[in-house]
Design a protein around this nucleic acid. Structure first.
Lengths: 219, 219
DNA sequence: TGTACATCAGTGAACGCGCGTTCACTGATGTAC
DNA sequence: TGTACATCAGTGAACGCGCGTTCACTGATGTAC
């Protein structure tokens, strides 16, 4: 029942997140909604930051699961479809959970520092993307590599190793850029920078990720 | 002196923004620092939101000025340099004013809705970028156009008109994507998503915008 | 089967804090005659 | 030149609110003998 109430607290906290944003998330409000004393919450989370961290880890995992599920249910051979399914899964999740998206990809919550526990959860999307890059690299369908500054080589090698991949440094750069692009586009849409500029966000997103797929070298 | 004190309030508010973030910006704290009663601030801004709006407009204008100045002092004929100067100016400004950047390009402040006054200021960076696109389009150095879904055509035409340009719809898409990319990359850097992934952010950014320049068709 | 005890989830009051906004006011300055 | 008045920037107290966290406590439950 301890597990159950912990989940219940997180559920209500997520609701508050969704209506007021992370900065306004308050232990007292959550406790009030659960009809318990605010002090009782401290039996489950020793501080507001600990609750916030739990929500962040949950958000990364929820996004990661959505992406992995979408990618897994797409035909293996169709690289472009697999790439698209990942990108659309990210966007769909973000639109369904805008405040959780803002929590992990928006401006950092002031005074809050994410502990390293979040890394394993945060890496799931990049991992899914890298898997596809590995396959296109093996198929040697990539566009010609462009020079990589020597000052970046060590970081790129470390990153490739962390992701358990064997892709080239050049492709790793393109992968990082694709990752950057997808979240940049979703942030622009969700944070209002395309308001009154683009109306059919769905179609525009499809065009974007299609062009980025070509840019990366996904056939 | 009214103008002076208004500027003084904004200056102190900006400092508070820089240390605590937008959500924590408080009229009382600003008044305290200026050694005046909190109620006195209401002679200058009729609410906290009005102060926030002033800061947002100032931030957009400050960024816009920085970008325009950088672009203007680059050799006219060197398109790639001009493109680079715009992108680097954005990043330099963002790194120098991280909380102002987060204010305008981070997650929206909960409960705050930006009034339309901000549009003229917000459009300065896109305008600078579009000018360059117009010149490469006129020079016909663009890569071959790719099909544009008909559902996007009206929006693209409206946008091209708003920006006072005559570029093709295809190039407008690439321009929107470049704009998206640059802010996506800077947000990732500033919001910590490249922490421990890339260390030499400057070099990585140069590589990114160089590849995006090619993607857009800047020679 | 019955008693003594330990555990621990949850309580409720309190501490000390900060916030946005309102309102009747003071008192210096400038203006009109 | 001097008086009466209007203006209005700034005051300070108050309202009503919410917050995170602590702490001594209650009282139900489960366990050991």
């Amino acid at each position: 029942m301890r597990v159950e109430l912990t989940a219940e607290i997180k559920r209500v906290a997520r609701e508050h997140l969704a209506s007021d944003g992370a900065a306004a998330l308050s232990l007292r409000a959550v406790a009030r909604e659960l009809d318990m004393a605010s002090s009782a919450v401290y039996r489950y989370f020793s501080s507001r930051d600990e609750l916030l961290t739990a929500l962040i880890v949950d958000a990364y995992n929820s996004l990661g699961e959505a992406v992995e599920a979408a990618e897994a249910s797409t035909r293996r051979k169709d690289m472009r479809k697999r790439w698209g399914s990942i990108c659309h899964a990210i966007r769909d999740w973000a639109r369904a959970n805008p405040h959780e998206y803002a929590l992990i990809y928006g401006s950092p919550v002031p005074g809050y520092a994410a502990p390293p526990d979040t890394i394993a959860a945060a890496i799931r999307v990049p991992l899914a993307m890298t898997t596809i890059l590995g396959e296109i690299d093996a198929a040697e369908t990539s566009p010609p590599a462009r020079p990589v500054p020597s000052r970046l080589r060590a970081d790129l090698d470390a990153l490739i190793a962390t992701l358990g991949s064997t892709i080239s440094q050049d492709l790793m750069i393109r992968g990082l850029m694709a990752w950057t692009y997808v979240f940049g586009a979703i942030s622009f849409e969700l944070f209002g920078h395309r308001h009154n500029v683009v109306h059919d966000h769905e179609t525009f997103f499809s065009v974007e990720i299609d062009r980025i797929a070509t840019f990366v070298g996904v056939q």
